[in-house]
Design a protein around this nucleic acid. Structure first.
Lengths: 256, 256
DNA sequence: TGCAAACATTGATTCGCGTCAACGAAGCGA
DNA sequence: TCGCTTCGTTGACGCGAATCAATGTTTGCA
C-alpha cells in the first residue's frame, strides 16, 4: 500500500539500531511485544498482525499524530517516546485526557464514531505503529485471540479512565500528583525501565491540566514532596526517594 | 443452560405487558433495540444474539448485579430501571463511577481482567439482559457487524469516561451538576422519554460522589439553579425550565 | 552564542467548596 | 400509622487551591 509513511515528516535522524526506533522491525522482533498488541498471539498470528501494521518515521516533539475531528482510521501503538492526548472544550479550554508511553495504545477515542474526539501530540521525538482499524477488525474476526486481546485493551482503557475519575473525584493536589508519579513509575517498571528515576516528558502545565489543578499547585506540590524527602526533583528529572511514602501520599491503590 | 435466572432474587411483581420488564421478550421485539446491542444487526443476527442472552427476573432496589472482585462472566444491558456503578478506594471510601439507564451496557470494567473492579447496584426495581461475554466473543467472531458494534460500544464508554474527566478537571459545582442533568436529559430523549421532566433515581449523595462534590454543595447548586428559574426541583423530580440556560450553566458541549 | 518565548517557582490574596452542626422531610418496616 | 432511619436542606466557618503578580530558569531558534 502506497503512502505508507506519508503521515510523518522529516527524515529520521535517530539511530536505527534499537528496535523501537527502527521502522523495519516487525512485531515479532519488537521488544515491546509483551506489552503491546502481540501479547497472547501465536507466531503465525503475530506475522498476520505484522502485515497490517504501518511503521512510520519518528514524529518530532509537537507533531500531531491525529487531531480532534480528524477522520478515524487507525489506532496507534506507541513505539518510542510519549504522547499527550487532549481535547478542546466548548469554552475553548484545553483538557489533557491522558499520557501514553511505549507499548500503550492511542486513538481508541475514535472507535465509536467516525472521527477522533481528542488530539494526540508527541511530547518528544516519538514513533508509533499505525494499525488501520478496519483491517484490525477484519483480522480479529479471523483470530479470536486477537479479538479477545483487543477487547481487553479497550477494557483496560475503560478501567484506567475510571481510576482517573476516582482520583479526580475527591483527592487533594498532593494525592493526585503522587498517583500520577506512581502510575508512571509502574508503567516504566513494566517495560523494564527504572521505577524510581525517570524524566517527565510533559510540562508542569500538562500535568496540572491532566490532574485538574493549576501549574502553581503542581509546583508547590512537588515542593512539598521534595521537602519531605519523598522525591528529588531536578526540572523534569524525577527521582523517587521513598516509594512507600509516595504510596502513602497517594492514598490510592496502584496495583492495577 | 440451567441456572439461567438464578442470579436474581424475588418473584417479579411488576406487570409483564411492557417489553422491558417481560423476561420473555426477545431482542428482536425489544423496543430498546435501537439503543442496545442489536443495533446494526440483521434479523438473523439478532436471533443469534438472542440465543445467548439471559433474561432474569427484576432486581429490587439495592440488589447488586455484581460486586467488585466478583469473577467476570457477563456484561449486562439495562432493560428497565437504572443502576449505579461504584468502587471502594483503598482508603475505604466509595466512588461512584457511573449511572446506567435502559439500553446502556454495564460491566465492561471486568473485560480486561478476570474480575470486576466495580460493583453495580440497582437504584430502583430494574431488569437486565445478561450477555455472557465468552459467548458474545464467540458470536462476534462469526458476526463481524456484532464485533464492530461491540467495539463501538466500548469506544463510547471510553469517550464517556474521558468527557467525565474533562468535567471533573476544572469545572465548578454548578457546571458539573448542570452537565449531569443535561446528560440524563439527552439519554432520556434518545429513548423517547421526556428530555425536560424526569425523576432522578439516585440520591443527592450519589450525585455528589459521582461529580466530586459534597451533598451540601449538590443541594446548594440545585438551589441556585432553581432560584435562577433554570430548574424546578421537587425532591427527586426534576423539570428543566430553561434548557438553554442549563446548557450555558454547564458550559460544556453535550452533543456526544 | 544570544535572545525571546515558554516554562517554572514563589509569594500574597481571594474565594469556592468542604466540614461541622442542626434540623426538616421522606421512605420504610413493624 | 407510628417511629426510626436515611435523605435533604440550610447556615456558619475555615481551609486548600485558584488567582494574580513578580521573577527566575530553560529551551529553542536565528
Amino acid at each position: 500500500m502506497p503512502g505508507n509513511s506519508m503521515k510523518i515528516s522529516e527524515e529520521p535522524k535517530v539511530a536505527r539500531a534499537r528496535c523501537h526506533t527502527n521502522p523495519n522491525v516487525s512485531c515479532s522482533d519488537c521488544r515491546l511485544g509483551a506489552l503491546c498488541l502481540p501479547i497472547a498471539l501465536s507466531t503465525e498470528e503475530v506475522d498476520q498482525l505484522d502485515e497490517i501494521v504501518k511503521r512510520g518515521r519518528p514524529l518530532q516533539k509537537g507533531d500531531h499524530l491525529f487531531r480532534e475531528s480528524d477522520e478515524f482510521h487507525s489506532v496507534y501503538a506507541v513505539r518510542s517516546g510519549s504522547f499527550k492526548a487532549y481535547s478542546i472544550t466548548d469554552s475553548g479550554e484545553v483538557q489533557v485526557t491522558g499520557f501514553y508511553l511505549p507499548g500503550e495504545i492511542l486513538g481508541m477515542d475514535g472507535i465509536s464514531s467516525r472521527h477522533h474526539c481528542a488530539s494526540a501530540v508527541a511530547l518528544e521525538v516519538s514513533s508509533v505503529c499505525e494499525i488501520p482499524f478496519e483491517r484490525l477488525e477484519g483480522l480479529a474476526t479471523k483470530l479470536p485471540s486477537l479479538q479477545h486481546h483487543f477487547f481487553r485493551i479497550m477494557g483496560k482503557e475503560i478501567i484506567k479512565d475510571q481510576q482517573m475519575l476516582t482520583l479526580l473525584g475527591c483527592n487533594s493536589a498532593d494525592e493526585r500528583l503522587s498517583s500520577l508519579l506512581l502510575s508512571i513509575s509502574a508503567r516504566n517498571s513494566s517495560r523494564h525501565l527504572s521505577a524510581t528515576k525517570f524524566r517527565l516528558a510533559m510540562t508542569r502545565s500538562d500535568i496540572g491540566n491532566y490532574l485538574g489543578i493549576t501549574v502553581e499547585t503542581v509546583s508547590r506540590s512537588f515542593g512539598r514532596l521534595q521537602k519531605n524527602n519523598v522525591l528529588k526533583v531536578t526540572n523534569k528529572e524525577i527521582e523517587i526517594l521513598d516509594m512507600d511514602a509516595l504510596k502513602k501520599a497517594a492514598n490510592v491503590n496502584q496495583d492495577k
